[in-house]
Write a protein that binds this DNA or RNA. Sequence first.
DNA 1: ATCGGGACCTGCTTGC
DNA 2: TGCAAGCAGGTCCCGA
Length: 273
Amino acid sequence: MPELPEVETTRRGIEPFAQGQTIEHVIIRQAKLRWPVDKALNKKLNGQKITGITRRAKYLLLQTHVGDLMIHLGMSGSLRIVGKREAKEPVQKHDHVDICLSNGKIIRFNDPRRFGSIILNKQADKHSLLEKLGPEPLTEEFNADYLHAKAKSRKVAIKSFIMNNHIVVGVGNIYAQEALFLSGINPNRTACKVSKVRVEKLVSNIKQVLADAIKAGGTTLKDFSGADGKPGYFQQTLNVYGRSGEPCLNCCFELKQAIIGQRTTVYCSNCQR
DNA sequence: ATCGGGACCTGCTTGC
DNA sequence: TGCAAGCAGGTCCCGA
C-alpha cells in the first residue's frame, strides 16, 4: 500500500492509539523482511514509552528513549490496530510483527511480499538509509529552483528522476505518473531538458497530488481500527495510472503505456510532450 | 557521478 | 479446470 499518502494516513491512524503508550511486548513471527528484524527487539523496547510517531520519506518512526523504530511498508505492507479486548482478531497470514501496548492495543504489521522493514536505530535521521535522502515533497525546501538545479546534467527520464529518493522522497509510481500528466510532461523526457517553467509546474503538481491524496486518505481514518484499515486510491481520481488504452480525460486520445525504470508508465502522447 | 538492471517476496489476474 | 506467465503501490546494491 505504500505511496507517501498511504504512509502518512497510516501514521495519523495509529497515532491516537500509540502516542504516549508504553511498549509491553514485541512479538516477531517472521524476521525475514527486507532486512532481518533484530531478534532482541523485544528486549530492547520492552517498557519503552512511545514519545512520538513521525514520518520521514516512507518510513514511519516510533520514537522512544532508546531509539527510533523505523517501519517501512515496502510494496505490500500495512499496519493495523488490533484491540485485545474487543472482537478477537486472530493472527492472519503474513502478520509478521506485533507491538503490544500498555492500553491493550496492538500495532500489527502485515506484509505479504516482505519488502518492508522494521529497524531500531538510535537516531533515525542518522541511519544510512535515511541520512542521504532528498527533501520532503511537501516542504518549502522542495521547490522549483532546487529541482531545476538538480536536474541539470541529469540524463535519466524525468519520471525516474522524480522517483529517485536522493532527489526528492515520497514520489512513487502512481503519483509520479499523475503529476507528470497534470504538468503536460512526457515521462520519458530527459530530466535536464525540462524547462524551468515546466519544472515549476511539476513541483506544484507533485505537492498538489500528494496533498490531495493525504486529504482523501484522511476520510478513511475513522475506520482505521477496523479489520483492514486500507485507504484506497479509488478515493482519488486517477487520470492515467492503470488506464492504459483508455481515453485521455483531457483530449480523448488513447493513453499509451511504456516501461520506464522497470516500472509501468501510462501517459498521453498528445498532452504530454 | 550516473545509469540500468537484477534482486528481494507473495498473490492475484490473465491466457493458453 | 489447471497451470504457467505476467504483473503489482519500493528501493537497495552492483557492475559498467
